[in-house]
């Protein structure tokens, strides 16, 4: 086996390193900066040039080496390289080759381009470790342009009625994806502090985002009529939000596909926008790798494995700590599910 799972995480014995480990290790290869993949406490980190600034921002003073997409690097008896996963800016799939056997750990990925993240590239391999957060055929995403047009229309209608539009979106990835794709001419854009901090990191590395105004205790919403307010999901429904008065509220998440979850959130609108692959995306990505062995993790693993097995793959469930049991809760306040 090129890759296996230990108590610490996905492990490559030939190179003596872990991928996205959940307990402290000596050498960690990190797919992207979300908290369940980039954890504190490892002795050395390796991530893409584009992912490293956010990881530093979140984990503080850690030892990170960086690497470009597609750049091979020898670690022990393994050769590794990072390839775009299309999940968030800087996110990567990690390719590991040992003695001619190639395995790829996908981290989180989405196959459709979002105008901000480096677009997903299929990487041919023998074994593919895939997430399946939305690994059921009820999940199917509309084209991004359509979702953004819906968000624009909602925002414009609220602005015309003199109401703020408060949109809950995860601070890394989703928020910037929305920023980069909405029609900023509709009105001012205010941001929650956690989102603005990530904006600053990404702007500093050269990503083009429209102008935003961070919400502070001094912010008076009357100075910004018709604003779009980007909030972290956990800030919705809290006192932080009350300053905006009778605002229209919305969430942007793949889970908004489900009416029950939408109603439970008690937001006015739910926009179906995910940074993970939908059912077709997962199936297309897996086919494109040409892999014979597929290990599924992180989502609806049991049915997705059975489906893949019926399609002729050697499919297994890989139990990881970012595996579905804790993270497939369709609660948009949790970053891995956003």
């Amino acid at each position: 086996m090129v890759l296996s799972v230990t108590d610490q995480g996905i492990y490559c014995a030939a190179g003596d390193f872990h991928i996205d480990p959940w307990r402290p290790v000596d050498r960690a290869l990190i797919t992207h900066g979300h908290a369940d993949h980039a954890r504190p406490g490892h002795r050395a980190y390796l991530a893409t040039h584009a992912a490293a600034p956010v990881i530093r921002h979140r984990l503080g003073d850690v030892r990170i080496e960086t690497i470009g997409y597609g750049e091979p690097r020898r670690i022990g008896d393994a050769t590794v390289s990072f390839h775009p996963a299309g999940h968030v800016p800087g996110s990567a799939q990690i390719r590991v080759e040992v003695a001619g056997q190639v395995w790829v750990a996908s981290g989180d990925y989405k196959t459709a381009p979002d105008g901000l993240s480096e677009p997903f590239e299929p990487v041919p391999c023998h074994g593919f470790i895939t997430e399946c957060t939305f690994g059921l055929p009820v999940f199917s995403w509309a084209p991004q342009a359509q979702v953004m047009a819906d968000i624009d229309a909602w925002w414009a209608a609220n602005a015309a009625e003199g109401r703020a539009s408060v949109l809950g979106a995860y601070a890394l990835g989703k928020a910037q994806r929305i920023l980069a794709n909405v029609d900023a001419a509709i009105g001012p854009i205010l941001t929650h502090g956690a989102i603005e901090a990530t904006n600053a990191v990404l702007r500093a590395q050269g990503l083009a985002l429209p102008d935003t105004i961070q919400v502070t205790p001094e912010t008076d919403p009357r100075d910004h009529p018709g604003a779009l307010v980007l909030a972290t999901p956990s800030a919705l429904g809290t006192p932080w939000m009350r300053r905006f008065g009778p605002a229209s509220t919305a969430f942007a998440s793949g889970w908004m596909q489900l009416r029950g979850v939408r109603r439970r959130r008690a937001a006015d609108r739910g926009f179906v926008l995910s940074d993970h692959a939908d059912w077709d995306g997962l199936n297309t990505a897996i086919r494109a790798t040409g892999a014979e062995t597929v290990l599924v993790t992180h989502g609806y693993t049991a049915p997705f494995r059975r489906w893949l097995a019926e399609q002729g793959y050697d499919a297994h469930v890989l139990s990881t700590e970012y595996e579905g049991e804790s993270l497939d809760t369709p609660d948009p306040t949790e970053e891995a599910a956003a």
């Binding site: 059921l136 055929p137 009820v138 489900l258 029950g260 609806y300 049915p303 059975r306 489906w307 019926e310």
Partner: peptide, 13 residues
Amino acid sequence: PLWLFEECYPVVG
């Protein structure tokens, strides 16, 4: 397959 449909139903509710 029908079994996959049945897996979806409790998720959608």
